[in-house]
Every structure is written in C-alpha cells, then in structure tokens.
Simulated assay, not measured.
Amino acid sequence: MNTIKYLALPLLAVSLVMTGCANRKPTTDANVTTTPSSSVNTSGLSEDAALNAQNLAGASAKGVTEANKPYLAKRVVHFDYDSSDLSNEDYQTLQAHAQFLVANANSKIALTGHTDERGTREYNMALGERRAKAVQSYLITNGVNPGQLEAVSYGKEMPINAGHNEAAWKENRRVELNYEAVPPLLK
C-alpha cells in the first residue's frame, strides 16, 4: 500500500503541473514584431502576448511615468540555463510592472514560463512553472495583489526561436508578461 502511495505522488505532481496549461490558449505564430505605430516592444513575444501588449483598449496611464515607460514596454524576462533566478537586469522591469499593477487594481497579468528545448517535457514544464512563480513572487513581494496574477508554464512547447544553438536557447528561456485586463497606456 505504501509503494502505491509513493508511486502515485510523483504522477499526481506531474499531472497538476501539466493541467496548468490546459486553460491557456496556444498561439499559432511566434514571430510577431513591433508595428511601427506602436510604442510597445513586442519583439520576442508570442502572438497572444504581442496582441495583449498592443491592446490599448481600456489601457491606463495611472502608475505610468516617463521614467518607467521603457521598463513597462518590456514584457519579457530572461533566465540563465536551468535557472529560475531573476537577473539584475530584470529587477527594474519587474519593479515598474509592480508599481503599475499596484496603482491599477483592475489590471490582470498572465506570467507564462518557457524553457529551451533541452531536457524532458516534464522537467521543462516544472522549470517553466518555477520561472513564472519567481516573477509572481517578486511582484507580490512588491505589493501586487496575488489575484491580479496568473502563473502558467508552457515548458519547451512554445519556442520563440526554433534554432538549436545557444543563441536560440537563450531567447527561449523566458517569462512573458501578458496583460489580460487594463494594460499600461504608454503613448
């Protein structure tokens, strides 16, 4: 009986991680770039993330300053190989998003964790989740209401760069910040 219990726990954990992706709609085109009329940098974002970044309907200027605009325009945080530690370069970006989210209680954001192609699907789902949760934890620590955040992992399933080298893998190790309600107005 104890053997069954110990075998069931890892299976249950893997299934819970995998069900986190079930409610997220996959994208069809990973090569979306910034349009000339936009002030939001969407290079490196999936199609859904780019559309969310461009969607200014209902956008808010509250919590947006000239100093934090460049950081709010950045919607991707990158990670080192096999790591979920935030880099020093990303703290200002995440701090700007935290300030905006605190000032706009109706804003909601999906934090989608991604990995490079190396490793098993199960391992990468868990690593993508750790990355999304690291960003989520930082935002909550800086005053953001947890109800405004959703952390999801796609693992290695949605690469931005389909290459099989270090440059491609570096681009794919990321968390995207996708505003689902009331994005920052950056114009």
Rank of each mutant, 00 (worst) to 15 (best):
K108M: 08
A162R: 13
V64H: 15
V32L: 06
N68Y: 10
V40M: 12
H97F: 05
A8V: 04
S15L: 11
A181I: 05
Y123N: 03
A57I: 06
L127P: 01
E47F: 05
L139A: 04
N161A: 11
V102Y: 04
Q136T: 03
T115K: 09
M158V: 08
G63V: 09
N41R: 13
V14A: 15
K133Q: 07
Y91C: 00
D85H: 11
V182N: 12
M158F: 07
T42R: 07
T93H: 01
T42M: 02
Q148K: 03
S87F: 04
Q54P: 00
Q136M: 06
K69D: 06
D29H: 12
G63L: 08
L12P: 00
T34G: 14
P36G: 07
A49Y: 06
Y123W: 13
A103R: 12
K69L: 15
C21F: 12
L86E: 09
G44R: 06
P10A: 00
V17G: 10
A134R: 01
V182L: 02
A30L: 11
E122I: 08
S84M: 02
H97D: 05
Y6I: 05
T65N: 14
I109A: 03
T28Q: 10
K5R: 14
L9T: 14
T115F: 02
H164S: 08
N41P: 00
N23D: 12
L11A: 13
I4F: 12
A167M: 09
A181S: 15
A167Y: 05
E66Y: 05
Y138D: 03
H164L: 08
N161W: 03
S43L: 11
N2Q: 12
D29R: 11
E150K: 09
E171A: 13
L51K: 10
K156N: 13
T3P: 01
